[in-house]
Amino acid sequence: MKKTLFIALMASFTVNAQVREKGEVEVSPFIGVSTANYFGDVGMMNEAVVNPYFGANLDLYFNNRWSLKTGVEYQTMGSQGESYGFYGFESFEEKINFVSVPIHANYHFSKNRRWYLNFGPTINFLTEATSNGMNMKEGITPVQLGLGLGIGYKIYVNERFSIGIDHQEYIGFTNNLKSKYNNNDLFIGNYFGSFSVKAIFKLGSSESEK
């Protein structure tokens, strides 16, 4: 009987210890795979491009349900397929690389707060853009804005470390094409989706240290 009570108490303590509180911070380096494509006035036979996806997120907790998610992420947008050119249909592959900064509300739910749902604006800073290996950075909007949305699940290992399984999506509000190169007033936006694995580390709590 005593052993059963001890196990129950320890299990309860472990669950409660894993629920984050106000002022606590998590840092989450991650790696995964992404797909991206264009939408809007595409006018070509296009397919998604598949690329690595990596970076690090930071969660600052306001209470045990809400946190601010931000960080630095390396995202590759673009498309591939065929477009109609001077010699008929021609194959193309375009890659647009960004350093991205999400500014998302993150809602943690379920009894043990294992699930989370994040949403909010993402700012993208252009680093490189190529079409079939040729530089096209000059014609691409250098700072872009869009909406990010994602869901994830935590696998608790101990009080200070968890593993996260994460899915994110992004849709761009900004036209890829700079206005001075866009005589036909076309809109071509970016769509992005990813799956990744996170190593989630809890840092010291500023509240608990007071």
Rank of each mutant, 00 (worst) to 15 (best):
K3P: 05
T4D: 13
M10Y: 13
M10R: 10
S12F: 10
S12G: 11
F13E: 04
F13R: 12
T14L: 15
A17C: 06
Q18A: 15
R20S: 10
E21S: 12
K22C: 10
K22H: 12
G23F: 04
V27Y: 06
V27S: 05
V27N: 04
S28G: 11
S28K: 15
P29K: 02
Y38K: 03
Y38P: 04
V42G: 01
N46M: 04
N46W: 06
P52A: 12
Y53Q: 06
F54Q: 07
F54I: 05
F54V: 06
D59F: 11
L60Y: 12
Y61C: 03
N63V: 10
T70R: 03
E73Y: 08
Y74I: 10
T76G: 00
M77Q: 08
Q80K: 14
G81L: 00
G81T: 04
E82C: 04
S83P: 07
Y84L: 09
G85E: 05
F86L: 15
F86S: 10
F89G: 08
E94R: 09
E94V: 11
K95E: 09
F98E: 01
F98M: 02
V101A: 04
F109I: 07
N112H: 13
N112A: 12
R113A: 06
R113K: 15
W115E: 05
Y116R: 09
N118H: 11
F119Y: 13
G120K: 08
G120H: 08
P121F: 09
P121W: 14
N124P: 05
T127M: 02
A129F: 01
T130P: 00
T130Q: 05
T130D: 05
N132I: 03
M134E: 14
M136I: 14
M136Q: 12
K137L: 04
K137R: 12
G139Q: 15
I140E: 01
P142T: 06
V143C: 03
L145Q: 09
G148D: 06
G148Y: 09
G152N: 00
I155P: 00
Y156M: 14
Y156F: 09
V157C: 09
V157G: 03
E159H: 09
R160D: 14
F161Y: 14
D166M: 01
H167N: 10
E169N: 14
Y170C: 00
I171V: 15
F173H: 10
F173W: 12
L177G: 00
K178V: 06
K180D: 13
L186N: 14
L186K: 14
F187M: 07
I188P: 00
G189D: 01
Y191A: 10
G193S: 12
S194Q: 05
S194F: 00
F195H: 10
V197S: 00
K198S: 07
F201C: 12
L203K: 08
S205C: 13
E207L: 15
S208H: 15
